[in-house]
Amino acid sequence: MNDALANAIIGGALVLAAVTGVFSYLRRPTPRLVVAAVLMVAAAVLVQAVVAAVLLINGERPQELGTFIGYLFFSVLVLPAAFAWARMEPGRWGNGVLAVGCLTLSVMIVRLQQVWDVTGG
């Protein structure tokens, strides 16, 4: 696993959780720049999943392989799902959904790193 990429995703997701939280409080629609940032983090998660998949194919194995693959799979879906659900109600609650999605993602990537670091044997 690429720690730099994972840390960047965690940091970015936490910042975006705070930012969307603020726009939720302000009852404002999510600014385009913030939407773009969310989509960038989503893209970074996809890149990370591809990198991790390549490592798995090359024979590297975390001890809890099933758990790892589960986190990897759902980490890719979290932001797109949150984005789609948030779009239906821009403003306070759409931003709230994005904040929940970003927080969830950051926790998932932390867990993903933890599971990866426990290798078999």
Binding site: Y71, F74, A81, A82, W93, G94, V97, V100, T104
Partner: peptide, 21 residues
């Protein structure tokens, strides 16, 4: 809708987490 939209998002998160686990 409204706060319920956020609530559904949190519930969905736990549905996925519990199911995967």
């Amino acid at each position: 809708s409204g706060f319920g939209r956020v609530l559904v998002a949190v519930y969905a998160t736990f549905a996925v987490a519990a199911t995967a686990r």
